[in-house]
Amino acid sequence: MNAQRIVSVVWFAFGAAVAYESLDLGLGEGGEPGSGFMPFIAGLFVCAMAVIVFLQTFVNQELKLSTFAEHWKGGKWHRAIWIVLLSVLFIEAMNVLGYFVSSVMLLVIIMRYLEHLSWTKSIVVPVVTVAVTYLLFSWMLDTTMPRGILGLW
């Protein structure tokens, strides 16, 4: 299946959904545009552009040959997925374990298991980074980070 074509269909669906929702918000009267007026136009515009890209995938040589496999060729894409998953884990862990523990864990896991750095580097760099960042943000912003069940910062 042509990858660019599928992506254009996704954008079309997005634009159409926005335009449809905008009808509910109300387009307003001529002299007084309603809440839905601007997003309705923007939604239709996205749809129109998506249709053009869709049609281009039949004519344009480069777009014609686009496949998912080609876009991810040679890249270590599983590493990108790991980063996203670990970040989600970090967000969820933060409220339970607290900011400090979950941040250090995130960095140690990435550095040691994804990047295969030495244990020393994988522990020293995260601890220093987290401490400095925490001090900077809490000093400048007077903010408190989640302490978690351990009560550490």
Partner: peptide, 11 residues
């Protein structure tokens, strides 16, 4: 990059 990622998450 882990440091950049972490600063972004904190920010």
């Amino acid at each position: 990059f882990p440091i950049i990622l972490f600063i972004a998450l904190t920010g």
